[in-house]
Computed example of a mutant assay.
Amino acid sequence: MTNDGPVGTTNRPTPDAAPDAAAGSLSNDLPGPSSGFVQSLARGLSVIRVFGADQPLMTLSDIARATGLTRATTRRFLMTLIELGYVRSDGRNFALTAKVLELGFSYLSGITLPEVAQPHLEELSHSIGEATSAAILDGSDIVYIVRVPTHRIMSVGINLGTRLPAYATSMGRVLLAGLAPDALSSYLHDVKLQALTERTVVSEGALIAELDAVRSHGWAVVDQELEPGLRSIAAPLRDGSGAVVAAINISTAASSGTSESIRERFLPSLQQTAADISADLALADRAGR
């Protein structure tokens, strides 16, 4: 007979009646035993992992079935997790508490922006088959902090730490559009706008108009202003307060389409990636406080 009744001091753990089931369970996903492998810890973590957005509340039987553990083992893990504050129960159903976030905060508080952005940009590059990058603003230049190349489309090699003029790059336009008015005025006062190609915007008024458009749209496309044959599209990365802290872009050969077609092809994926990275940055920021 099953029993999903209250878990309390009167329901003392009993010895496992049989080895834990494995078929079709989370325990199947656990690595095989090794000299340093602690199976009980792995099983306890599987109890936490079984909860999700589609299953925020689960009974003892649900959890035992999903993890492949016996009911007695599952009960002991749940009692321990309740005692530690990671799980709560109304007597029948179990749910995670916000305290489980602490398990990841130590890691999140120590990671840097490039470490957050790198896997997202690798996934984006793989899905679209084009180079992706992330950069920050440093003075009048952008500085590359992440680069996922595919094939070389620029005469100048791009590596981590490469600096390029902000006004002639898509990531630079996004970063400049995110500046406070005083900071942007200082930038415009100090920068010398030079024609890098015949398409480069070198008028301060025209650049300000471009930045106004970027601020309105939330993205920037630069068409062969940095180098002939190179076109790129960029979107901002924001921290928990909503401030622009970096930018990401997709760069491609101008021969692969028009500015409009590139926007249609790449902007949705770019914006989704920017949103995902920004969400991770916000979480890391909260963890570090």
Rank of each mutant, 00 (worst) to 15 (best):
T162H: 08
H126K: 14
K192H: 10
R76Q: 14
I158T: 09
V201I: 15
I208W: 06
E225A: 08
V202D: 10
H120Y: 11
R238W: 09
L41D: 14
G5D: 09
L113D: 01
S251M: 10
G32S: 15
R289V: 13
T200C: 05
A72P: 06
I136S: 02
T73A: 13
Q55I: 11
S109G: 06
L121N: 00
P56T: 03
E83Q: 12
H120E: 15
T162Q: 04
S278D: 11
T80H: 10
G129E: 02
V245I: 12
E210V: 14
A168G: 07
P236I: 02
A235P: 00
E260H: 14
K192W: 01
H151G: 06
S251D: 08
L108C: 02
F105W: 05
I208E: 09
E198V: 09
I233N: 11
P236T: 00
R92Y: 12
A18D: 08
E115P: 06
S125D: 00
S251N: 10
V221P: 00
T73H: 12
V174I: 07
L96A: 00
F266A: 07
T59Y: 05
A21F: 05
T132K: 13
N11L: 08
G288H: 13
D16H: 09
Q224G: 02
D138N: 11
E123I: 03
T59D: 04
G161H: 09
I277T: 00
R75T: 14
D138Y: 06
T67F: 01
A135V: 03
A254P: 04
S27I: 13
G161W: 07
E204Q: 14
A21H: 12
T258A: 01
D138T: 13
S35T: 11
S40K: 14
L78G: 02
S241F: 05
D190Q: 13
L69M: 13
E115A: 15
G8Y: 03
L124T: 04
A183L: 03
S106A: 09
N11F: 09
G36P: 02
Q39S: 15
M79L: 15
Q39R: 15
R231M: 15
D285K: 12
D239M: 06
R76G: 08
L281T: 03
R289S: 11
L230E: 00
S186P: 03
L184K: 03
R215A: 15
V100H: 01
A131F: 00
S125P: 05
V156G: 04
G104Q: 10
S106W: 11
L60G: 08
S89T: 14
L184G: 00
R12K: 14
R215N: 10
T200K: 07
T14E: 15
R65L: 10
N3T: 11
A282M: 01
G44M: 06
P119E: 01
V245R: 05
